[in-house]
């Protein structure tokens, strides 16, 4: 696979050295050029997916298992479509925590999946570190589709891709250096926030995180971000506003007094958006609580809201990740 623009190739080493990792377990620890390589690889699939005929035979004959130990609709669908568009045989395993017991069973499940000789396993699990635990036990590449409150790397990548393409489409410099991004919401419990923080700071963006004290992780500034409690201050002059979902059980008094109080302090309204840079874009990993963390007229704001673009980029990004991680298996030139 070659990148769409030859000039980009100089950003990273040739062949497997461009992405020397066996698994994609997190963004933390990836080098900037490795992230850029994945983003560049995804670009072609964005264009591909916009064609009427979307089926490609790149991963033809390969088996991909989506093992979801935690409920998911959109991420699972996105991975399934990504695998199928590339011609792979995709199998979904729904194993919500209730049906699959914890404990050795998790390792046993991993060994079982491994024994079925899948060529890649996509895993979501409710416990931080669970995907890594499984990855250590299997022979094929593992993609983390979200582990507890740790990481959701493909989300971080697809968000970076979305931002970069939005900059390009608006005729702007597509460098992340100096870009101001504000991530607001339940940072404490968010794997999306962590993967985005790692991704964007690695690429040189200036990241602010905003949350009430109860939802702000301790030591977050060690991740090279600036913490805010005041959303208006955090928005000041920002280029990208990334809202996080607040779980409904956390806004009934345990962390937040009520949904309307949360909206009062942290809801992204049109008035608040006006505090950001004049053409700032709005993102949300979904599913949204409209009228709580984001108002409908912001979520649907044409030209500014990238929320559906994120979903589109998600498929392309996951296609790129599946392609890159299976290159060794497929004996791709330079990747053996």
């Amino acid at each position: 696979m070659t990148s769409p623009e030859p000039t980009r190739a100089s950003r990273y080493p040739a062949g497997a050295a461009a992405f020397p990792h066996r698994h994609l377990l997190g963004i933390a620890g990836l080098a900037p050029h490795e992230i850029l390589f994945l983003l560049d690889e995804a670009e072609q699939w964005v264009e591909h997916n916009r064609q009427p005929h979307k089926r490609h035979d790149l991963l033809s004959g390969l088996t991909i298992i989506n093992a979801f130990f935690e409920n998911s609709t959109r991420t699972l669908l996105s991975f399934e479509i990504a695998g199928k568009r590339l011609g792979a045989d995709v199998v979904n395993m729904h194993a919500a925590q209730s049906s699959v017991k914890k404990g050795e069973t998790l390792i046993d499940t991993a060994l079982t999946l491994n024994a079925m000789r899948s060529d890649a396993i996509v895993i979501r699990h409710a416990s931080s570190g669970a995907v890594r635990l499984i990855a250590d036990k299997v022979d094929c590449p593992v993609l983390n589709a979200g582990d507890g409150q740790h990481e959701h790397p493909t989300q971080g990548l697809l968000d970076a891709l979305t931002i970069r393409r939005s900059l390009r489409e608006r005729g702007k410099n597509e460098e992340f250096n100096g870009l101001k991004v504000t991530i607001c919401g339940d940072v404490l419990h968010s794997r999306v926030a962590r993967s985005n923080i790692h991704c964007l700071t690695t690429l040189g963006a200036e990241v602010r995180v905003c949350a009430p004290p109860a939802l702000m992780p301790e030591g977050i500034e060690q991740l090279k971000v600036t913490p805010f409690h005041d959303f208006d201050a955090a928005l000041d002059g920002t280029d990208v506003v990334m809202m996080l979902r607040l779980q409904s059980e956390r806004m009934q008094g345990s962390f937040i007094p009520s949904p309307r109080e949360y909206r009062h302090l942290y809801g992204l309204t049109l008035d608040r958006l006006a505090k950001a840079a004049p053409d700032a874009v709005v993102m949300h990993p979904g599913p949204m609580n409209r009228g709580v963390e984001i108002d409908s007229n912001v979520a649907d704001l044409a030209g500014r809201s990238l929320i559906t673009t994120q979903v589109e980029m998600g498929v392309a990004m996951r296609m790129a990740c599946l392609d890159v991680l299976t290159r060794r298996t497929r004996n791709v030139e330079g990747w053996q």
Binding site: A28, S128, G129, D147, G148, Q149, H150, E151, R191, R194, P217, E218, G219, I220, Q222, L223
Partner: peptide, 10 residues
């Protein structure tokens, strides 16, 4: 609570 727990999401 601290940097390590925050990084690991524990």
């Amino acid at each position: 609570a601290g940097e390590m727990a925050t990084r690991l999401g524990l």
